[in-house]
C-alpha cells in the first residue's frame, strides 16, 4: 500500500487516517496479520515511533488487535468495520456538501446534481 503525507499536519493523524482506510477498504483484509511496525514504518517512510502510536490508536478503536506473541491483526467484527466505513463516508459527504454549499447548491440541489446532472 502507498502512503502519502503533507508536512503541514501531524504525521500521526495522517497515518491513522490512511491505516483506517486500508482496513475499511479491505486492503488489509479482515482477520489478516499486519506487517510489523518496523516494516510498516519503512513502507511509509516514517519513524517507527509514529507508526506505533498510530496503530495504538487503531487498537483503541478496535479495528486492530494484538495477539500477544503473534503480532497485530485486523478485526473480523463486520459491524465495527461497517461503522468505521460509515464514519469515513460521513466525513467525505460532509465535505462534499460543504463545498457544494459554497458555490450555491443547497442539500437538495447537491443531491439532484449527483442523481441527474453528474456527467
Amino acid at each position: 500500500m502507498e502512503f502519502q503525507f503533507d508536512n503541514e499536519r501531524p504525521i500521526y493523524i495522517q497515518l491513522v487516517q490512511q491505516l483506517r482506510i486500508a482496513v475499511v477498504s479491505g486492503d488489509f483484509a479482515p482477520g489478516s496479520r499486519l506487517p510489523s511496525v518496523r516494516e510498516l514504518a519503512l513502507t511509509a517512510k516514517v519513524n517507527p515511533n509514529t507508526m506505533q502510536k498510530a496503530l495504538t490508536e487503531l487498537e483503541g478503536e478496535g479495528l486492530v488487535f494484538t495477539e500477544r506473541t503473534n503480532g497485530k491483526f485486523v478485526t473480523t467484527d463486520e459491524g465495527l468495520l461497517l461503522r468505521a466505513k460509515r464514519a469515513l463516508a460521513q466525513g467525505y459527504a460532509d465535505r462534499f456538501l460543504g463545498e457544494m454549499a459554497q458555490i450555491g447548491y443547497d442539500r437538495a440541489g447537491a443531491l439532484s446534481y449527483l442523481q441527474d446532472d453528474l456527467t
Partner: peptide, 25 residues
C-alpha cells in the same frame, strides 16, 4: 517526516525544543 523531536539552534542558543507533530498541530 522521520523526526520525533526538533531542536532549533540559532547563534549558539537553543530557541525551541518540541515534538514535531505537536509543532505541526
Amino acid at each position: 517526516r522521520i523526526l520525533d523531536d526538533v531542536i532549533f539552534l540559532d547563534r549558539g542558543k537553543v530557541l525551541l525544543t518540541a515534538q514535531a507533530d505537536d509543532l505541526r498541530n
